[in-house]
Design a protein around this nucleic acid. Structure first.
Lengths: 165, 165
DNA sequence: TTCCGTGCAAAGAGTTTGCATCTGT
DNA sequence: ACAGATGCAAACTCTTTGCACGGAA
């Protein structure tokens, strides 16, 4: 599903559920769906301010809360990196997080769902969702890093994109 | 390694690194290592208050920060469940989290490290650590739950223990 | 004796909430 | 018209920090 279809489908779905499509909401959702990374609440807010200068942070939080309830956004809470959101691919999938530049790359691992199902069967848990994240240095930071183990953090954005998987 | 050995080794290691072994620290660390679950900061604090009534929350946080730096405790940050700590097995391992009663069970999945290594090789990331959590209903809550999909949260403690894995 | 650790209180960040106003339907 | 959304500010939780006192080594 391409971004345009995803946006239209999402908006339809929200309308069907009785949610109102205010300009602010549409702007937030559009940004979320079109964003090629894993934006923070702050980034979403900044992105729509030019179009809707009075939009408050609270509205962004409320809109995200609504989307979360409907399962239309994946929330990635990190301790220090803050919370990031993925409105493009709301289904659980592995992430690779660079502890130096903060880049977050998606990865699709075939067979993961089966693995989760197997663990569920073995333990008796009814697994509804999961989270699989890996932390380390992205290729770019690896090349630049003084020492391969040094862990720092910055806001470099040279690798905020996706990985083929 | 049994709990007793783990405690002694950890204390030795801290001493070797020049940290002072105050009674409060020893109490916090002992509780952390002996705890059969994944205690919160608050729980650790409450646990040592009977022995050291003046201990502050700040000291617990500072002690945990020290242990984290030394890699002697695994921090599990959850959005709503708060942060939990594992001082028994600080190495990354999968967890099964019950979204109804809050129970957190450990699980050891053989072959996980190889899987992570494979993903690292494919993506070029230098993976230093990872996190793999599954969310759903534990066996006990499954049996009690009105509907298998209902997700609620409480502080039931009927299943805070470990799973064989 | 010397720092490091402790404990209190204040500060801080991120997120949520109450409420009056506004608006999509 | 009216239920629902917005925006502002206050509140809230969890965690960190500054600083003077106290205690481990």
């Amino acid at each position: 599903m391409d971004t345009r279809t995803r946006l239209a489908t999402l908006l339809d779905s929200l309308r069907d559920k009785g949610h109102r499509l205010t300009p602010q909401r549409v702007a937030i959702i559009r940004t979320l769906v079109e964003h090629d990374g894993h934006p923070t609440v702050e980034q979403l807010h900044q992105a729509i301010l030019p179009d809707f200068p009075t939009t408050s942070l609270a509205t962004v939080y409320k809109t995200i809360a609504m989307l979360k309830e409907d399962g239309e956004v994946l929330e990635l809470g990190f301790g220090e990196l803050g919370s990031r959101y993925d409105g493009k691919h709301p289904e659980p999938h592995p992430h690779l997080i660079c502890t130096r530049c903060g880049a977050i790359a998606d990865y699709s691992l075939q067979g993961l769902d089966e693995l989760v199902a197997r663990m569920a069967a073995e333990t008796g848990f009814a697994v509804a969702s999961h989270r699989f994240d890996m932390f380390g240095l992205c290729p770019a930071c690896r090349a630049t890093a003084p020492k391969p183990n040094t862990v720092a953090q910055s806001d470099a954005d040279h690798a905020t994109g996706q990985l083929p998987g």
